[in-house]
Nucleic acid binder design. Sequence first.
DNA 1: CATGAATGAGCCTTCATTCAT
DNA 2: CATGAATGAAGGCTCATTCAT
Lengths: 204, 204, 204, 204
Amino acid sequence: MSDPVQEQVLAARRAQILDAAAHTFAEKGYHLTTIKDIARAAGVADGTIYLYFANKPALLLAILDRMTEAVRDSVDPAELADLDLRGLVRATLGHPLRALGGEHAELFRVVLSEVMVNPVMREQFSQRILTPMSQGGELIFQQWAAQRGLPPERTRLLTRAIMGMILGLIVEWILGDETLTTHWDELPDFLADLIIDGIGDTHS
Amino acid sequence: MSDPVQEQVLAARRAQILDAAAHTFAEKGYHLTTIKDIARAAGVADGTIYLYFANKPALLLAILDRMTEAVRDSVDPAELADLDLRGLVRATLGHPLRALGGEHAELFRVVLSEVMVNPVMREQFSQRILTPMSQGGELIFQQWAAQRGLPPERTRLLTRAIMGMILGLIVEWILGDETLTTHWDELPDFLADLIIDGIGDTHS
Amino acid sequence: MSDPVQEQVLAARRAQILDAAAHTFAEKGYHLTTIKDIARAAGVADGTIYLYFANKPALLLAILDRMTEAVRDSVDPAELADLDLRGLVRATLGHPLRALGGEHAELFRVVLSEVMVNPVMREQFSQRILTPMSQGGELIFQQWAAQRGLPPERTRLLTRAIMGMILGLIVEWILGDETLTTHWDELPDFLADLIIDGIGDTHS
Amino acid sequence: MSDPVQEQVLAARRAQILDAAAHTFAEKGYHLTTIKDIARAAGVADGTIYLYFANKPALLLAILDRMTEAVRDSVDPAELADLDLRGLVRATLGHPLRALGGEHAELFRVVLSEVMVNPVMREQFSQRILTPMSQGGELIFQQWAAQRGLPPERTRLLTRAIMGMILGLIVEWILGDETLTTHWDELPDFLADLIIDGIGDTHS
DNA sequence: CATGAATGAGCCTTCATTCAT
DNA sequence: CATGAATGAAGGCTCATTCAT
């Protein structure tokens, strides 16, 4: 049990199964994937999976855990320290767009799909991904808003709006929007300008 | 067959089944709902459902059809005619937020969940909801963009960003964000201001 | 009820349904044919069929009845009267080979298939087709056997052997034997020679 | 997988299921037999059957395979080597009459019934049973026919006629002919005489 | 720990039959 | 008599989960 070598082996096997699950889920979707599919992809027996995970939903939850870490690790607070507003917004937008819009997209699609429909997953997703993002975003804008004398209510809505934009763009992208596929890399800049300057002709 | 009264009866029964399906899907999700569940909810026998719909997926598609009509009917072009930019944006945002965020939300959740994972549903959703919205949005901004000398590319991205914001906010709201639940009605105004003016300190 | 015109109409409708059933059974087989298939082919409603036939098996039984008549009608006792042995055998063989091997074959296939497995059909088939054929055959050979001083036992076996040959050849033909398809018309002559002369080299 | 003991166990279970299927099919017919029936008869769970057979038709095909082997094993070429014509014909007839007419008859009935109606089964039956029998028979008669200067065409028809006689007699027997039931054992001798000598009064 | 054969509840779907119109 | 919508029992098959080896 407490043998560190043994623990490593177990952790490795767990990871191997989770890799297989992620890969298969991404390919066929959660409901169309069978435990047998995952076992085959992982090169283990069906029963083995139940030595590492309680059941099929637990696999998806574990994948969500992993995604949580990936998102968390992609944020470097130090990096945000000396940026001006535009840089800040640009960075805030760029991270999730890159983290979730890249190769993890197929998996994110499956997770989000289940999150929308499964209460347990929804709760976990909110707690681990959405809430931290909201709070992080609010923190960033709070300071700036205080200087401008804006009510905190606005900050909260602003954060939601920006997060929504990110989430929605990823969804649109997942659904196959060609314009987004082509211009994905330009988005952070474009959106930062949009959010900061708006589109309005304020001088006329 | 061609008896108009009989046709009405059949249409009513179809609607009755579809109502039951929508209700049950919304409650338990698509995959956890059985045909028996729907039949019971509709007060008909299992087999009766197959007189009106080819199979289970067809029920979901029919629901998507219904949603399509609901969204389409909620837009009144005449209403948009003499609005200024701010009013235009406000209206553009308000419609889908109300149409999909209101009572149809539970259903929208199920549909979107399946759309993300099921190619057939995705195709239909893109064709019937997303593409019309994109084109409508682009049309609206095109004229305005032409006056400002902006490249059409920007118009396209702008449309996506705004649509994304709408979609993402609905998703966030579905996932249970309290701030959004509380301030849902203020969103159109708030977002219109954000999009037109931006948050930036333009005078300094 | 006793209105002769009305009776004609009813008989015609019954025949129309039976035609449709025969046609559909022949095409798809008994078990793969649905009442709806037959109704469509007959141009009537599903329920109408039950006004003329008790249930699905009854349709097959009625078809067997029809086949019985067809076989019976194809035999003309007068024709057999002044034939010599060879002619007699030839005629005896030719009739069923033509009656069941021709266009009725598809239907005969279905009937025989069900006869082999369904006790009720088997009983009927034996009573109406097999037994009459046996008795007819025995009658024909009896007289001839008596002249030769053969025991009646032999006559009975001989009849079975010849009937078996006919039945078996039809089955082989149904199963797609090419040699038989090509030489079907020569069979009566060939078989008559075989049965009468044998293949043996009787002089050596 | 490659454990020979385990393989034996699996083969035994497969046989056990196939036995149960054969028994139940023979009793109730193919279409009236449910997977549950077979499972119960085999003493296993429904799902277990699908670990050994792809689906219900596969069970029937496997039974056909078994019958093929039984027929093949019943033929001993060496035994036929030094027989005269009469002995040869007698042996040729006796084998299938015993192989298919004995205890396998019930099963043969079901198989033949389905063969007549199901293209896949028909193809398999032709390939595995009918064609080998034809070719075997042709081979046997060819040599003899060559000596007599008969055209090969006749040999082919002769083989079909004899095979047809066998097949047809089995069918008649299956359908419950009492004369055949009583005199089944005498058939090979009787038929051999009939085929070789014919019934004709060759001297008159 | 690993295996994978076995389980059996449960799902979607079909279709013969009925009966109100 | 004719219709055809409605019924609901039943069937083939899948697959998450267990447990003896």
